[in-house]
Amino acid sequence: MIEIHDMEQRYQQRVVLRVASLRVPKTGRTIVMGRSGSGKSTLLHALAGILRPTSGSIAIEGTLLQTLSGAALDRFRGRNIGIVLQRLHLIRALSVRDNLRLAQHLAGLAPDEARIEQVLAGLGLAQRLEAKPHELSYGQQQRVAIARAVINRPKLILADEPTSNLDDDNCAEAIKLLFDQARDCGAALVVATHDSRIRPLFDQELVLEACA
């Protein structure tokens, strides 16, 4: 369960995001919509613990993020939150396998080759384990980014604009992969997007308006 209460994010005295209340059930799928500048990415960053809210609280599976120190928050993020960024940002210097190994290492988990192969097989990348990101198509890279986000079986998966710039077929496939992986992990899924094509697929919707 993800819970947000009276969260406010200010930037130089200006309120850039305000969320009065949000509850995402354990395996719930929530879509966050809004125009550019409405604070979608800011909300994801706050949920990921990489941005501390100016006020209010965020709890993930009972853990209040504001109570965690910097190092503890880093560890918590590594083990409990998986993030798929809009531009993917795979580590180009590493192979697909090593990108996933690095995610395990940074979360403080022991290397688990079986898990890596299982996740990549589930995403149709079993044959591309040793490929470097630039040797893959965009669709394949996105699947690697999803694999990296779920490799540590997180409790919350965050995705920022996962379907923008994708045609309908690829959009449907990307969303399906996200849903499947979230279900397999038993994780809640929060997707920030302005892509209304995927709106009907979610259990819950949060629409953000730009703050005055």
Partner: peptide, 16 residues
């Protein structure tokens, strides 16, 4: 710079 930011999202601390 994005790689470093991504490393932080994956759980790397500032010290790492």
């Amino acid at each position: 710079r994005y790689d470093l930011a991504v490393l932080r999202t994956l759980g790397a601390g500032q010290g790492s």
